[in-house]
Design a protein around this nucleic acid. Sequence first.
DNA 1: ATGGCCGCTTCAAGCGGA
Length: 258
Amino acid sequence: MKIATWNVNSLNVRKQHVLDWLAQSGTDVLCLQELKLPDEKFPRADLEAAGYRSWFTGQKTYNGVAILARDTLSVDEADVVRNIPGFDDPQQRVVAATVDGVRIVSAYFPNGQAPDSDKFAYKMQWLDALQAWLRTELQRYPKLALLGDYNIAPEDRDVHDPAKWEGQNLVSPQERAHFAQLIELGFVDAFRRFEQPEKTFTWWDYRMMAFRRNAGLRIDHILLSPALAETCTSCEVDRTPRTWEQPSDHTPVVAVVD
DNA sequence: ATGGCCGCTTCAAGCGGA
């Protein structure tokens, strides 16, 4: 099963990119973030025509997440979850579903803005809630994948210019400690299980010709539970959609699991 | 050296992103 995550920065604008990329990548399960549309505007019919069913939770203007699954895969409707249970939050950042026996979580972690801001405090609270929930999810679903825009670059090698970024949002010690806590829960960073090209990133600022300079960060990740990690045979960043006309500032991350 | 983009709201300029 080929699983992937992609922050599309408006599904309205990127719908055709998503359809094109699904067709050319052969992805079975695609997690999307930053839909930036309310549920009634979700292009469910277009995706169904392309052979994918959708589970999502959206809102106007901001946030919004989805899971698309090839319609040949079995999905247990009864255990689809929207938002982190017990964490009251108007921001739509999490959707989870079980696809062919694999628990899939599509997550859009808060940006945090700056380490001394209210938004950063919210990011920390959100991370605490996520971790507490995942602890129980891991027990319930031995095969679990957490895919999404984490808004955390876990290590300096995930940053194009670590000196320039030191202490800033997305790379701060507090954020990295949260990522490390997920690893302590048993999660495995699928990308790091394999040999990778140096300076592989998943996001590049729209400004400053950042993509052309490869001035990016690796902030989109696929973490796998121990049992699922055992089955993982590849994980790659696919830069091609970032080269297309009017691209998202993020590009997909893809893994193959069983 | 600085900051330079993009999408959304709704038609203008501000917010949020990262």
